[in-house]
């Protein structure tokens, strides 16, 4: 196993050590040099921090749910296509995936802004006074993050749907089941592991969202990441930045743990592994 040693050293140097440094900074005051929990105390007693925590959780959970709602039909449609058509359509999903998050955010401003394409169209039809607030609020954030996350949800589900044994669907059809029934009692339950995997990918990424909420959100759409950035760059309070980081990290680990649990135990009971 010596060949992974260089990698271990590298990871220890650039990941583990900084992480330990953050942990250290979160419990040792820079001014007094004393071991203290005051920064965590501040986090859990100040309204601002708790509000940001709540916002972060809200955006992550609702964003994941919306992503699932949008991604599942796309995945289902893709799985039904011929391999050739599917690869073209997959490209359409990958294109925004490969585009910089900044570029996308600015593109949304062009489309959704006060003088954007959508509002221009609305004004044209309904008159000068009609304008929809599509940007710099929660709606804008959701549009941005869901658009960002859809590929992470689509691909695990497509792979699952394609791998499903089609003779099970055929058998159900011959037994008299309608398409709706086949979907809800066979296809969907069998796709749940992929839904869980996709949700996991998406929710963890959403917890750390930074650029999109900052650009497309309003004053109150502040995420934990934005808060960390604020403490480092503007407040120069490294202790607080570290404490917020640790809370965010623990929260992510907690969700990861919960979702892997659901994935493993839940859906199928204990399934013996063959071979």
């Amino acid at each position: 196993m010596y060949f992974i040693l260089p990698l271990l050293i590298y990871m220890a140097a650039v990941f583990l050590l900084p992480l330990l440094f953050v942990l250290f900074t979160s419990v040792v005051s820079e001014t007094s040099g004393q071991l203290t929990l005051e920064f965590f105390e501040r986090f859990f007693t100040h309204g601002l921090y708790l509000r940001v925590l709540k916002t972060t959780l809200e955006i992550s959970l609702i964003g994941t749910a919306l992503t699932l709602l949008i991604a599942y039909p796309i995945a289902y449609y893709l799985a039904k296509q011929t391999p050739k058509r599917r690869s073209y359509l997959t490209l359409l999903i990958l294109l925004p995936f490969y585009t910089s998050i900044l570029v996308k955010a600015f593109a949304f401003m062009v489309v959704l802004g006060y003088n954007g394409v959508v509002n221009d169209a609305i004004r044209l039809v309904l008159g000068e006074d009609f304008v929809l607030p599509l940007l710099f609020n929660r709606f804008g954030v959701m549009i941005g993050v869901v658009h960002d996350m859809v590929p992470f949800m689509v691909f695990p589900i497509v792979i699952n749907l394609l791998a499903q044994n089609s003779s099970i669907h055929k058998a159900a059809e011959i037994m008299g089941a309608t398409r709706t029934r086949i979907f809800w009692s066979i296809i969907f339950p069998l796709s749940l592991p992929a839904v869980a995997a996709g949700s996991l990918l998406v929710i963890i990424r959403l917890m750390g969202q930074f650029v999109t909420p900052a650009l497309l959100g309003g004053r109150t759409d502040i995420m934990m990441s934005n808060l960390i950035s604020f403490h480092i760059k503007d407040a120069l309070d490294w202790n607080m930045a570290a404490a917020v980081s640790i809370v965010l990290l623990l929260l992510s680990c907690l969700i990861l743990l919960a979702l892997t649990r659901v994935r493993g135990a839940q859906l199928f009971g204990e399934q013996p592994r063959h071979g």
Binding site: N165, S167, I168, A171, S185, P189
Partner: peptide
């Protein structure tokens, strides 16, 4: 009714 080579039982 139909019986398949790979049984086609619902695994869940």
């Amino acid at each position: 009714g139909m019986v398949f080579q790979n049984y086609a039982l619902m695994p869940h």
